[in-house]
């Protein structure tokens, strides 16, 4: 009968909650005790460099397009050797929700997450980080990847010199 089920359903939770009261607390008391972060924890973002020590970021705007809270803004520009890079790059961490979608969108593995998360600040302007602060001196994850060795447009290596490329063709050659 449903009335017995209802009564049982009303009484039973009391037992569950009572039992819970005597279970150990699961809270980690943060400043004193530090939890161990998961290996793929998503904390503050960094801009990494490629194995040659050059900035990986090519300012393609994909992270800013992927960002659901629009906290990334930048301006791309061109270096003398044709390399595309960010003239300025700004992340507003007071808006960032650490979802990591930017790192998924990044085609050059430039923007990466770290395990660092202690960025609370009383001055909102200090949570706005510029490229100089975001750029690190290592490759982060994917230490071997260099975008320009895969994109054959003659920036990191001369045209046709990347692995898997033929030498530039002679367009005036008519030999079969």
């Amino acid at each position: 009968m449903s009335i017995w089920r209802d009564i049982k359903g009303t009484i039973e939770p009391f037992w569950i909650t009572l039992r819970n009261m005597f279970r150990p607390v699961v809270t980690v008391e943060y400043p004193e005790v530090r939890t161990e972060l998961a290996p793929r924890y998503r904390g503050r973002l960094i801009l990494t460099r490629d194995p040659d020590g050059q900035e990986r970021c090519v300012a393609c705007y994909l992270c800013s397009a992927a960002c659901p809270v629009d906290c990334i803004s930048m301006q791309a520009t061109e270096a003398e050797d044709g390399r595309r890079y960010a003239a300025w790059f700004r992340i507003n961490f007071s808006r960032c929700i650490f979802c990591g979608l930017c790192t998924e969108a990044c085609p050059t593995m430039a923007i990466q997450v770290t395990g660092f998360f202690e960025m609370a600040n009383r001055n909102p302007l200090e949570t706005v980080w510029e490229k100089e602060e975001l750029l690190v001196d290592h490759c982060g994850q994917e230490p071997d990847y260099n975008f320009y060795h895969h994109a054959g447009i003659g920036v990191a290596a001369a045209r046709g010199e990347n692995p898997g490329e033929d030498k530039p063709v002679d367009v005036k050659d008519l030999m079969p």
Binding site: M21, V26, E29
Partner: peptide
């Protein structure tokens, strides 16, 4: 406190 304990918090 009691609600906390029920929810396994201190």
């Amino acid at each position: 406190k009691i609600l906390g304990r029920i929810q396994l918090r201190p």
